[in-house]
Design a protein around this nucleic acid. Structure first.
Lengths: 264, 264
DNA sequence: CGCCGCCTTGAAGAGCCTCAACTAATGTGG
DNA sequence: CCACATTAGTTGAGGCTCTTCAAGGCGGCG
C-alpha cells in the first residue's frame, strides 16, 4: 500500500470517478468531455490547495482522502466549515472574505478538471449545472447539521453525534457480530476544530464512552461501535438520527471500504 | 403605524419588491408573471410558516420583518440557522430531517408566490434559476459566517461581531455626529439562539460594552454605536471586518430605514 | 388595575479549556 | 543499528468563563 501506490491506484479511481454520484448526474457527452479533461493527482497531508489570496483556481472531485475547508484567525483559532469527503466536488468555493482556505487533512487523491473546460461546460450543459446545484444543497444540509451540532449540543453530545455520522463518510464496516468498525482517518485536531472543542475533550469523551460500553477504542485511529442506540441517546438525539447527513458518495464509499488496509 | 397598516403598507412593498435584488436578477417577462402571481400578506410574530411534518409549501419574498429558520430539540434546545431578512427568499428550503421549522421572529410582511407558477417558471426560465442559485450561495456564505462565529469566537466576541454585522440587515442609520443607531428588531432570545449563547450573557455583554464606551444602550431595543473599530477589536476580528456578510437587500434596506417609526 | 412577557441583575456552580507532563509511535542522522 | 528528535495522542490538575437558577423591574395589554 505504500510503495508503488501511484501506479496501483491509477486505475480504480478513474473507475470510481465515472460512477461517482456527481458524475452520474451529468449527461454522458459532457461527462466524457469532463473526464477527458481530468487528471489524477496524489497529494500529501496538510497541503494547502487554496487560500484567500492565492486563488489556485482549480475544480475537481475528491477520489480518496479528506480535505478541510476552514477559516483561520491570526491568533491561531480555527474552525473547519466543511469536511470534503470522497466523491465530493472541491474548488468551486469562491469565498471573498478573509481567512478561508482549503487544505488536505490526509493524503488525498484528487481528480482535477481543467478549469476552462469545466466553466465552458457549465455554460453549455444543463445537467452539469443541475448536478452542481444539488451538490450545493447537500453541502448546505451538512452545514446545517454542523451548525446545529456546534450550537445546540454540548461537546460530549457533539462527539457522540459525530461518531454516528462519521460512519457515512469515514472508512466503516459492519462486522458479523453486530458491531461496526470505523477508522478515524483524520486527526484529533481536525475533529476538534470541526466540532469546536479541544483534542483533550475528545480523548476524555472517547474514554468515557468506552467506559460505559458504548464504544471500544482499539487504537487511536480505530473505534468499535458496541451500542449505536446508546450512542445516539448520549448525543441527545431523537433516537435514530443515524441517517448520515454527511454521507459520502455510495460508489466511492464502497471503494474506500473495499481497500485492504484501511487508512492510518 | 399600528392602525390601518395593511392599507398604508400595501403599495410600498410592491414597489420595493420589484426593485429587490432577487427580482432584479430575473428577466422582465418572468418577473412580471411572478409578481402577478404574488400576494402581500401580513403575519404576526411567532407564527409557524413551515415545519417538518406540515409542509406548508409556499415560496415568497420577505418584504419586512424577520423570519427564523431553526431547529428544535424536544428538551427545548434551539438553534437558529438562518435569519431571513427583508429581500430574502423563503420557503424554498426542503429539509428532510426532523426538527426544522420556519417561523416569524417579528411581525412580517410577506409576498407569497403561487407555488405552481414559481415551479413552472423555474423550469422555463434561466434567469430565475440563476437568481435562485446566487441566493443560495449568499445563504451559504451567511451560514459560514454563523458557524465560524459560533465555533471560533467566545460569546462576547460573537455579540460584538453580531452587532457590527447587524447594521447590514437590521434597521440602522448613521447619525450626523458620526455615531450610528441600530434598532434591535428581534428579541434577546432569538439573538441568543442565533449566537448559541444565553439571554443573560447578551445583557451582561451589552452592559459591559456600554461601560467601555463602545456602545450605548438607549433602551432595550436601541443601541448607539460609539466606537465601531473598538467593537471590531472586541470581536477579535482582523480590524475592519465591517463588511456585512449577512447584508440585506439594499433596495429593501433603504425602505426599512426610511420608515418614520423604526420597529419596536 | 393587575397579569404576563421581556429584559435585567445577582449568585453559585460546573463544565470545559488551558497548561503541563508523559507516553507511544515514527523518522532521522550519526 | 541505536540515540535522539518530533509529533500525535493521552492523562492530570487548576481555574475561569459561561450557563443555570432565581428574583426583581419594566412596560404592554387585557
Amino acid at each position: 500500500m505504500l510503495h508503488g501506490q501511484s501506479t496501483t491506484v491509477a486505475k480504480p479511481p478513474a473507475c470510481a470517478l465515472e460512477q461517482s454520484r456527481f458524475c452520474i448526474q451529468v449527461d454522458p457527452a459532457p461527462r466524457a468531455r469532463l473526464i477527458r479533461a481530468a487528471h489524477i493527482e496524489t497529494i500529501p497531508a496538510d497541503k494547502v490547495l487554496w487560500h484567500d489570496d492565492a486563488p489556485c483556481r482549480t475544480v475537481g472531485l475528491l477520489v480518496s482522502g479528506y480535505l478541510r475547508f476552514q477559516r483561520h484567525n491570526r491568533d491561531g483559532r480555527r474552525q473547519i466549515l466543511n469536511l470534503t469527503v470522497p466523491g465530493d466536488l472541491f474548488g468551486h468555493e469562491d469565498e471573498r472574505n478573509e481567512g478561508f482556505s482549503l487544505e488536505s487533512a490526509t493524503e488525498a487523491v484528487l481528480c482535477r478538471f481543467d478549469r476552462r473546460v469545466f466553466d465552458e461546460l457549465l455554460i453549455e450543459d444543463g445537467s452539469l449545472r443541475r448536478a452542481l446545484y444539488r451538490y450545493g444543497s447537500r453541502n448546505l444540509d451538512r452545514l446545517h447539521w454542523l451548525t446545529w451540532t456546534i450550537g445546540a449540543l454540548r461537546p460530549e453530545e457533539r462527539i457522540a453525534a459525530f461518531l454516528l455520522n462519521a460512519r457515512g463518510f469515514l472508512p466503516y464496516r459492519d462486522l458479523p457480530d453486530g458491531t461496526g468498525l470505523i477508522s478515524l482517518a483524520i486527526s484529533r485536531r481536525d475533529i476538534a476544530d470541526l466540532l469546536a472543542t479541544s483534542v483533550e475533550t475528545i480523548c476524555r469523551t472517547f474514554k468515557s464512552l468506552g467506559k460505559d460500553g458504548l464504544i471500544r477504542l482499539l487504537d487511536p485511529a480505530h473505534v468499535l461501535f458496541l451500542d449505536p442506540a446508546g450512542l445516539a441517546a448520549r448525543a441527545g438525539l431523537p433516537d435514530r438520527e443515524h441517517a448520515p447527513v454527511m454521507a459520502s458518495d455510495p460508489a466511492v464509499m464502497t471503494f474506500i471500504n473495499d481497500r485492504p488496509g484501511v487508512h492510518r
